[in-house]
Amino acid sequence: MGAIERRQLLDIRRIYVEPAAAELPRGREVLDRFPGAELVEIAGHHRIPELYGDEANVARWVRIKTEALVLGVKKSLTARPNGRSADFIAPSTANGCAMACAYCYVPRRKGYSNPITVFANIEQIIGYLRRHAGRQGGKPEPNQVDPDAWVYDLGENSDCSVDATISANVRDLVELFRDLPNAKASFATKYVNRDLLDWDPRGRTRVRFSLMPAADAKLLDIRTSSVGERLAAIDDFVAAGYEVHVNLSPVVVRDGWLDDWAELLGELDDAIGPATRRQLAAEVIFLTLNDRLHEVNLGWHPKAEDLLWRPDLQQAKRSETGGRNVRYRTGHKGRYVAALTALIGDRLPYCRIRYAF
């Protein structure tokens, strides 16, 4: 899919509002941004029967993402240890997404619809993060996440670049981490939002541009910025003061997959200059799918499942939440990972692989 205009991505016509959120300054700002939207009062952002759990919503998947917004208050504030993409997962300032990547795990948690939920209690979240980072002190030793700073992932359940088109929450967080001496922010994105280039992050926010071969992205990365747009933005974000890594995921195994990844790595090498190469690192994540997401996808985008749901290549594993995940078979997956990491080492010798699985 090529470039997508903001007005195509979001055309908010109905906002589901927790009264407590509407009373907060950030909540009022969001409501003022969409003055023509119908307001629907809700008891809680997780309890909206007409959005979550209604199987009929599969047919309206993209329309709901485009037209609905939820405004709530984040009740539980915790920074969970991580160790892969970040040292900690920060409390969410948003949940859900206007984009519609076929492999996204959030829909399997939220049911048959996952429009954006914005949390209005940003000052409370910022205060929590400042105190949490302060308690950590200096990082005692380097790890694969970062050699010096504690890294907090901001967008586990959303895409921060899209969230930034709705509220100032993400900018507030970038400005928070800009001034924390021992911590960095981090988020992965599939949407190029050039407004972020004016935020002066001073190297304290890491943007991880998600990349996959164009043939896969056309089928799986629905309503996102094109891979070409993402590649073209990388040097600009480095010049604007961001640390930029690449998130090579999900890696989908199919006929010709390694050749297409070789082509993508060549395109990445051609797109970036010396400043980006000096700081570039990568995460490599092979596809994991869930049986509940598979059922959802069959209702709105069955062609994607021809690529994602491959029982001949995959094996099942019961997840911690009781679902049935499928991933590439043990033994075979190890060879796939080794082949791709060797290819990265050959084509991008300057790019450190932070982790691959």
Rank of each mutant, 00 (worst) to 15 (best):
R206W: 06
V58K: 14
K317N: 14
Y328N: 11
S249H: 13
A240T: 14
G137I: 15
W199M: 13
E243L: 15
I166A: 12
V17G: 09
V227S: 02
T165E: 08
A102K: 06
D195W: 00
S76Y: 03
L289E: 14
I222M: 00
G44Q: 09
R33L: 13
N157H: 07
R13G: 07
P91K: 12
N182H: 03
T288Q: 04
G299V: 06
W257C: 10
G256C: 04
H245P: 00
C351Q: 14
I64W: 02
I285R: 08
L265I: 01
L219A: 04
A22N: 08
A21I: 07
E23I: 10
N121H: 13
V73F: 02
A233P: 01
E175R: 06
I116G: 13
A3E: 10
L268E: 11
R130F: 03
N121C: 03
T93K: 02
L313W: 12
N57K: 10
D87C: 10
G53P: 04
R352G: 02
V70D: 10
L268D: 12
G127P: 00
C104F: 01
W257P: 01
Y355G: 02
S161N: 05
R354D: 10
C104P: 01
G273Q: 05
N290F: 03
L196I: 02
A275L: 11
V227M: 07
K190T: 12
D306N: 11
G27P: 12
N114H: 11
I125Q: 00
R277H: 02
G111I: 11
P115Q: 09
T205W: 01
I48W: 00
E305I: 15
Y191R: 09
R47M: 03
A37E: 05
W309C: 15
A149S: 07
P140A: 15
V253P: 05
A168H: 12
R130G: 02
F286E: 07
T189N: 05
K184E: 05
R329M: 15
D236Y: 10
S76D: 07
C160D: 12
G111L: 13
L154Q: 03
P142F: 10
G134W: 04
P49C: 11
